[in-house]
Design a protein around this nucleic acid. Sequence first.
DNA 1: CGAAACCTTGAGAGCTCTCAATGTGAGTGG
DNA 2: CCACTCACATTGAGAGCTCTCAAGGTTTCG
Lengths: 231, 231
Amino acid sequence: MSSVISLPQPSQAAASFNAPVGGIHGSGLFASCPELIGTPFAYAREEEIYGEGEDAEFVYKVVEGAVRTHKVLSDGRRQITGFHLPGDLFGFEQGETHRHTAEALSDAKVLIFKRRQIERAATHRAEVACQLWSMATNNLRHAQDHMLLLGRRSATERVASFLMEVDERLGGTGTFALPMTRRDIADCLGLTIETVSRTITQLEADGALLRSSTSRHVSLRRNRMRRAVED
Amino acid sequence: MSSVISLPQPSQAAASFNAPVGGIHGSGLFASCPELIGTPFAYAREEEIYGEGEDAEFVYKVVEGAVRTHKVLSDGRRQITGFHLPGDLFGFEQGETHRHTAEALSDAKVLIFKRRQIERAATHRAEVACQLWSMATNNLRHAQDHMLLLGRRSATERVASFLMEVDERLGGTGTFALPMTRRDIADCLGLTIETVSRTITQLEADGALLRSSTSRHVSLRRNRMRRAVED
DNA sequence: CGAAACCTTGAGAGCTCTCAATGTGAGTGG
DNA sequence: CCACTCACATTGAGAGCTCTCAAGGTTTCG
């Protein structure tokens, strides 16, 4: 909620929904563990980083740009499980394979770590293991909040809640550019793109936000926005 | 998915949805850490164990019975975030306060641990920290699966998926007694009790399950059940 | 400037919810 | 052991929210 994430390129950065404080712990993690040096790698916009079912040999840390992770059903229905920002770690699994797919939201630079190496560091250094635990617990808390949203909130509440969360992550100024498409938003909130679009239009009509030239830029009237979420 | 949980009283036990393998790691956790001795405590059916917003001073381990955790909105809408079975740990938080409420599903016996004590053990023993990390990661994986269910699956798919999961957790025989009410099921799946009821009736009409005398007992025809979930 | 992807808007359908009534089982006291 | 009670579960009818299908507008990019 109050996490501060440095955003080298605010207009391009994405919110990190599944790892709210991941950036913080992520930064500390490797600082305290100099033997863990990641290999730099770059991905183009929309490029797949790993796919569901693949061996979970590596773990990733966002350096620049943004990444999304999602799960899909056989008929194509998609649920985004998280957006990951600079500083965030993603790709950890308990089992042998990835349980979701990761793709670059924008052109992105990451550091790649060998999972075994990190696990080894964790088994030898309680400090590292505690940070990983802390990170996972934070991600879990966020996932539970999102379950409440998906299971019990209306379209208006979901979209308003989403916009406020993106705003917070992008500096909390109330004015920002959404780093993802309507489809990404819809697949994160369990809605359709049409419903997301209509809801944003309605929020604007209610005076809860303003849109400028491009559809990605919004200015939130946060008091009215909060009223739309109510709780 | 293949976790085996010992069920002293199958007809009373509940599925553990948010901590699929928690029981396993939970058992190991304190076995390897004899200085951590929990204080036994008992709760009556429907009794609150802790409430959202309270200080997260303690951590709990189910010994007997079952526990559910949930979040609520101000208007009463509720989302169950997990059912916890014997062996499962619950109540961990990253911050100072509990982010959800825990209640006994049936009469339950638990062991209570001081959170600080466990955290201290974790900072001194990488093994303990790794187990806690592992547990959190497993819970996170389950939460992400549940997000897909809540965001993208139909009522039929949700109920069928839920029933199969309960079956697995209760031994996988295909025949069992649901340990929770329709309301609990509905609040876990993001549906209403009426929709849950209608969906079960429909699954029975489709030959995917049989109900005996009491509404809580079901026998799954797992092949047809799987077809209802399709994926 | 043209093409393609993205976004918005409209109309109607469908799934789930709401409201209401009935049925059922477990527990209690006579 | 039975009647009573209350919580729980089922069923029905209609409403409402979101989806689907379709068309048109807008932005981006080559």
